[in-house]
Design a protein around this nucleic acid. Sequence first.
DNA 1: TACATATGTAAGTGCTTCTAACTTTGACAA
DNA 2: TTGTCAAAGTTAGAAGCACTTACATATGTA
Lengths: 202, 202
Amino acid sequence: MATEQTKNSRDSYHHGDLRDALLQATRELIEAKGRDNFSVTDACRLAGVSTAAPYKHFKSKEEMVNAVIADAMGRHYASLQLDLAGHEKGSKARIVAMGLNYVDFALREPEMFKLRFDPNAPEESPVLKENGTLVYNLVKEEVRAALKEPEVNAKVEDRSYMLWCFVHGMSYISLIPDVADKRPETPVAVLLDDIADRILAD
Amino acid sequence: MATEQTKNSRDSYHHGDLRDALLQATRELIEAKGRDNFSVTDACRLAGVSTAAPYKHFKSKEEMVNAVIADAMGRHYASLQLDLAGHEKGSKARIVAMGLNYVDFALREPEMFKLRFDPNAPEESPVLKENGTLVYNLVKEEVRAALKEPEVNAKVEDRSYMLWCFVHGMSYISLIPDVADKRPETPVAVLLDDIADRILAD
DNA sequence: TACATATGTAAGTGCTTCTAACTTTGACAA
DNA sequence: TTGTCAAAGTTAGAAGCACTTACATATGTA
């Protein structure tokens, strides 16, 4: 009897969980064809509903995409927590792990990564700002501990920002087509370890 | 008599220099309203022609945008040459100047900067790749000289890449809305000088 | 069982990119 | 000076898009 109540497949007039289905379709389509080639119509086709259906769940295409970005940030944050768990707090290894996690996510979900930092309607999405602050505070706290500073002072701010700039740039550059010839042989993890030493040095 | 021949303003059936006018309109509109909100129709309105006119000069909207990006890269390269002129070859100041130039361009033409590194149809635009290689070779040569290495070896490759990652990330981060609270008080130029020391150190 | 509400559809508006067929203009050869 | 052609505009329209309105159907609850 209980199994009768959940009808996820499209065997009736009502979908069951269209909101999620649309988010998934949106994410897959954006990741497959790029932000510029995504259309709500395509997402509807994938979910098997009419083109008007999404507007019962989202105000606009923009809001749909923003919801997908927020989802991606959730996944990113979860994977970060997982990666951090294996390293001792205040260790350089932990900082390197954070950097690697950042780069890995960019490679895993390039379109999500790019959209996260260049959304169409930034001011509409305070979720992104909160998420960013949350993660960046984590970075600063790690840097503070690694530098053995009693508090997050100007020095910690500077070094944290340097690390972020480096890791962010490395991630973005990894996504640019045709830069394979510019990337050195040295593996990403080694480069990260190296730069961490340099930035954490006095 | 000679003045009669050049008719740049739209006082006749033929425009005179529609291609350039469209490129300028495209650039202005993208920079003003963002890549996602640019339409060829708008560019036509600005240039004062019908919506079919652009297709006598460009194959598609994509090609139009790519041409505008290529233009922007030309301006960027010119400004780089200008900024380099004032500094001695092989000096750290010259490397810092390159970084500052990069960040400045991103701030000056944010949409062009973002599009340059995330175009819609990358494979169609070998111009971008050539431009990138040209500039990056400049960086590597500067780093080689600063490190006093006889040639561009693995060490030079690594350090150049580190510098690029940092500067690229710094530029991108400067364009993210609502990160003012994360940016340290320390001026960009000082941070660049600091990181250059760290990356060029043994 | 009645009904309010949530969630779907069909149809249509106005915008978009891009094409096809036509018109105007300027350049150049006879 | 004039005829012809290619270049560079035009208008009209096809196909696809985001989104709205009015309507249909299902679900939960009194």
